[in-house]
């Protein structure tokens, strides 16, 4: 539940990523939401599951598409004090991926752990 601090309300936010990057704009614009949220001193969580795990796959090269490769930004989140990044183990395994394929430090959690975490949130943002 939310807690009151001298600075105001602090809520548990989770930004849930379930879609692969580039095919649609959702991954990029959720990342924009995450970055903006850093300015509000909230308890921010970022989750990667289902095809969202591809957002943090190493080695993204978008030169031939003309898209901006925004994947390095996930590594910059730490600098904004956004450090609670979670990736779902089952989602990685289903896609033949492992933690070694990821470009950012994330906590690998089981589906059950991810589900429990989701249930603890005050605000869940998805796209």
């Amino acid at each position: 539940m939310e807690e009151e601090f001298e600075g105001g309300i602090v809520k548990k936010f989770m930004f849930v990523n379930r879609k692969a990057p580039y095919g649609t704009v959702y991954a990029l614009e959720v990342l924009e939401m995450v970055l903006i949220s850093a300015a509000f001193d909230q308890d921010v969580h970022v989750a990667f599951l289902d095809d969202g795990v591809y957002q943090i796959k190493k080695g993204q090269d978008t030169k031939d598409l003309g898209h901006k490769n925004f994947s390095p930004t996930y590594r910059a989140l730490e600098g904004y004090d956004i450090e609670k990044l979670f990736v779902e183990r089952e989602s990685l395994e289903e896609r033949g991926l492992s933690e070694a394929d990821l470009l950012v430090d994330v906590e690998v959690v089981s589906r059950a752990e991810m589900a429990k975490l989701m249930g603890e949130m005050d605000v869940v943002m998805t796209a």
Binding site: M1, V16, R18, M118, M121, D122, V124
Partner: peptide, 8 residues
């Protein structure tokens, strides 16, 4: 509910 989670 305490929160609404849209599975988009």
């Amino acid at each position: 509910s305490s929160a609404v989670h849209a599975w988009l």
